[in-house]
C-alpha cells in the first residue's frame, strides 16, 4: 500500500471504540497569507469527531500541528503520538496486521539499541605516541 493510497482514505468509519475517535478528515492547513486565501500551509489539519455519529451531535476536535511564527502548538512527543494515531486511524483494516508486525520489529530494534550504543566495544582504538613523562607543574600562591 503506498502512502498516496492513505492520503485519499477517509478512515475506518466502521470502527469506533469507546476511547479512540476515528479521524474524520485530514487536509492541508490553510496558509496564513492574507493576500491568498486559497493558499495551502505547511501543516496538516486533522479533525476528530468527538461524539458517535448516531448521537446526532456535531462535536469535532480540530488540530493543526504546524508552526506559526516561532510558536509550536504541540511538543515533538505529542506531535509524533498524534501522527501515529492519525496514521493508524487512516489505515484500512487490511493493513492492521502488517502494522502490528512493524511495531513489534521497532520495539525489538529500539529495545536492543541502547546497550549496543553504550558498549565500550564500539570504540575503535587509535594509535598514539607516548611522550617522556613530566612532573606535574606547581602553581605557587598568587594574589587574586
Amino acid at each position: 500500500m503506498s502512502p498516496l493510497d492513505l492520503m485519499s482514505y477517509k478512515g475506518r468509519q466502521e470502527v469506533f471504540s469507546g476511547h479512540a475517535s476515528p479521524t474524520t478528515s485530514w487536509k492541508r492547513c490553510e496558509a496564513n497569507h492574507e493576500d491568498d486565501a486559497n493558499a495551502e500551509g505547511d501543516g496538516w489539519n486533522v479533525t476528530f469527531l468527538l461524539t458517535p455519529p448516531e448521537d446526532g451531535l456535531q462535536a469535532y476536535f480540530e488540530i493543526c500541528p504546524s508552526e506559526y511564527g516561532n510558536v509550536r502548538p504541540l511538543s515533538v512527543e505529542a506531535s509524533t503520538r498524534l501522527l501515529c494515531h492519525m496514521l493508524t486511524h487512516q489505515l484500512p483494516a487490511r493493513g492492521l496486521s502488517e502494522l502490528l508486525g512493524s511495531l513489534f520489529e521497532m520495539k525489538s530494534y529500539y529495545g536492543e539499541a541502547p546497550s549496543a550504543l553504550t558498549s565500550s566495544q564500539e570504540f575503535e582504538p587509535i594509535s598514539c605516541s607516548m611522550l617522556e613523562p613530566e612532573a606535574a607543574p606547581v602553581f605557587p600562591v598568587t594574589e587574586e
Binding site: I126, S129, M130, L131, E132, E134
Partner: peptide
C-alpha cells in the same frame, strides 16, 4: 600516580580519530 593527558600539540588530532595523538604522562608526586 601517573595521569595521562593528550599533549597540547595533539588536541586537534584527538577529536579526529583518524590521526595519531601524542600522550603526555604527568607524574604527580
Amino acid at each position: 600516580i601517573i595521569q595521562l593527558m593528550v599533549a597540547e600539540s595533539s588536541l586537534a588530532s584527538a577529536i579526529d580519530f583518524r590521526r595519531p595523538i601524542a600522550v603526555l604522562p604527568v607524574v604527580h608526586e
